[in-house]
Nucleic acid binder design. Structure first.
Length: 270
DNA sequence: ACCCAGGCATTGG
DNA sequence: CCAATGCATGGG
């Protein structure tokens, strides 16, 4: 089975916890100790191996997607060095050693995922999203491909409401799919400009834009200051603070810091 | 039967 | 500019 090397350190179990923590994610499916995802119409199985992961089947064209999905772009060594100056992060980087936050390979999937997670619990969000995937995506062997933007653009809002979307969110998702926004163009823009463009779209607020920066673009300084779970994690680890300004404490590693705090609060406790 | 959960747009002061 | 409100589901 072909080995795909990953930058070290890397811990597969911790890094994929997000795909198991809130119920089934049909597009990033945990199955018999491995992660399954459909790439270019083919289902890949990814499992841990020394120095990286085993991927079956692996073609050259798929490597960039898998590397992104597994968080390879993050500079963990630099972050771990930075973390030594902060007692909380020093502890978390030890407990979660090798944790690379997964990045979404698909901008539409990332935005829809965030929209489904607005306001409601992650369990509720995953359940609704899985029904959407089963209704509008394509099944492979175990996992499903996430519905394409084109497929949702031709859907009726009422079809999404039947899956448990609020009428408002159904409208957001369909109008996003039908919008003129060019996701690839956003890659070239600085963080603030990306946020300005995204927030101009109906249903995308600052929180959703921040998570897009963090989990699709992998921008090091993304800090989802409006996130309730992150607020609670910061309060429990650091005590009551001025939360929005708290991100500057982690400059320039806000994204990784946020992920370590959130995952730490779930897996390690505080 | 409640209440809360990794928001957002809308309305009204 | 800030406060109040409705939204739909899953878990406690």
């Amino acid at each position: 089975m072909p080995l795909l090397k990953l930058p070290q350190p890397y811990d597969f179990e911790v890094s994929t916890e997000r795909f198991r923590a809130f119920g089934v994610d049909r597009a990033n499916l945990w199955h018999e100790g491995g992660l399954h995802r459909v790439v270019e119409g083919r289902e890949l199985r990814i499992e841990p191996a020394p120095g990286g992961v085993l991927v079956e089947p692996l073609t050259n064209g798929d490597s960039p997607v898998v590397l992104t999905l597994l968080g390879a772009p993050f500079d963990l060594p630099a972050f771990y060095h930075f973390a030594q100056a902060d007692p909380v992060l020093a502890c978390l980087t030890r407990d979660l050693a090798g944790f690379r936050p997964p990045l979404s390979p698909d901008p539409f999937e990332a935005l829809v995922g965030s929209i489904t997670a607005q306001q409601v619990s992650m369990f509720a969000a995953f359940a609704v999203r899985s029904r959407m995937i089963e209704r509008f995506g394509d099944p492979a062997e175990h996992a499903w491909s996430f519905p394409t933007r084109e497929r949702i653009a031709s859907a009726r809002e009422e079809e999404l409401v039947e899956l448990g979307f609020s009428r408002r969110k159904a409208e957001y998702v369909v109008s996003l799919a039908r919008s003129e926004l060019d996701f690839e163009e956003l890659r070239e823009l600085p963080d603030e400009e990306v946020k300005v463009r995204l927030v101009a779209i109906r249903g995308i607020g600052e929180w959703t834009a921040d998570w897009f920066l963090a989990r699709y673009l992998g921008r090091p300084r993304a800090w989802p200051a409006g996130d309730l779970a992150l607020q609670k994690a910061v309060v429990s680890y650091y005590g009551a603070q001025d939360f929005r300004a708290f991100g500057t404490r982690f400059e320039p590693f806000q994204n990784l810091s946020a992920h370590y705090l959130l995952t730490g609060a779930r897996m390690v406790g505080s």
